[in-house]
Design a binder for these strands. Structure first.
Length: 313
DNA sequence: AAGACGAAAGTGGTTGA
DNA sequence: TCAACAACTTTCGTCTT
């Protein structure tokens, strides 16, 4: 199969320079041009088939497989057989009353058996919630799978008892995001979930501590790609902003400050340096910090980075 | 008019006693 | 548990382009 067949027509070529040299970052949900850096598709859904070869060697190229793919997004991993609700046989003919009664009993037992344990009933509620949050945050299916796997670990450890399923699901989303450096803030997650920021923060900390998860401290750098993408800024601006943050880090000008504010300020400066200006208000909007904070941060950055004020005229 | 600036007062989180 | 503290927000008047 030709690789380009699965990619929609509009993101095969760069709109800006016409180059076909594109970078498909399915984890971040972005498609950007390697030549001019234009972000062509931000937070796109991962439309690619999850098929993979089951041979020992990947080189065989044989992607055939039998049955539905295994997925954590269905609580029994999608491996069970469903008894159809229609009273028809395989050829579409109606079945007799005796058989029909038998089918009715089978369906009843299937639903009882499938959702028998409280563990599974919990997952039946939790998985759709986790999927919904991931979808609203434009996260890919792979991320959603990881969230569900983590949720199952939390459930096994007994931490869900006494806490709301929604809160745990949202917390798992946030943890997976921060572990994969996907640049989603606590605010963003709480906005699309059914719980408040405070409860989410508390719940997420409990899970992190109890499961001894090592989530690296979210750094300002982690937010740069997401913010740049939202503002349609090139990878040039992005690289420069990352460079600014790194320099500021070395001079210890970033400790104790909110990483989102630093990221926003660095992008603000970078956008001016590169000549694709974005306003403080635009930066404030995507980063969920105020213009005042961006102002304070960028003034500080200018000092430690030795950048001329003339860039802003 | 839009964007940027900065002062002042208020808010919420962290830390250490 | 509480106070102290730094970071951040909100609001608003002023300046600059």
């Amino acid at each position: 199969m030709d690789e380009e067949d699965s990619i929609p027509e509009n993101i095969v070529k760069c709109k800006e320079c016409g180059s076909r040299d594109l970078n498909h970052d399915t984890d971040r949900g972005e498609v950007s041009c390697n030549q001019c850096g234009l972000v062509l598709e931000e937070q796109s859904l991962d439309l690619g088939a999850e098929w993979r070869t089951f041979q020992d060697t990947d080189a065989s190229g044989d992607r055939s497989r039998v049955g539905a793919p295994m997925t954590h997004l269905i609580h029994d991993k999608g491996l069970s057989t469903d008894i159809d609700w229609r009273n028809k046989d395989y050829s579409g003919k109606s079945i007799g009353s005796k058989t029909r009664a038998q089918f009715y009993r089978m369906r009843k037992w299937q639903s009882r058996a499938r959702n028998s344990t409280s563990h599974e009933r919990n997952l039946v509620k939790a998985i759709p919630e986790a999927r919904r949050i991931c979808e609203q945050l434009k996260l890919t299916k792979g991320v959603a799978e990881e969230v569900v796997m983590l949720y199952k670990r939390v459930l096994d450890s007994g931490l869900v008892k006494g806490r709301s399923i929604d809160a745990i699901a949202a917390s798992c989303v946030y943890i997976v995001c921060s572990r994969n450096k996907l640049g989603r803030t606590l605010d963003e997650v709480s906005k699309v979930s059914r719980i408040g920021r405070k409860e989410l923060a508390r719940c997420y900390k409990t899970i992190k501590n109890q499961l001894r998860l090592k989530t690296e401290i979210t750094k300002a750098q982690d937010f740069v790609p997401a913010f740049c993408s939202k503002l349609h800024l090139s990878t040039k601006v992005q690289t420069r902003a990352l460079d600014f943050i790194e320099q500021a880090d070395k001079k210890e000008a970033t400790s104790g400050k909110s990483p989102t504010g630093i990221a926003a300020a660095a992008i603000y400066i970078a956008s001016h340096v590169e000549g694709t200006v974005r306003t403080q208000r635009e930066l404030a909007e995507v980063s969920s910090v105020t213009e005042v904070t961006i102002r304070n941060r960028y003034k500080e950055l200018l000092q430690v980075l030795d950048i001329e004020d003339s860039v802003f005229s």
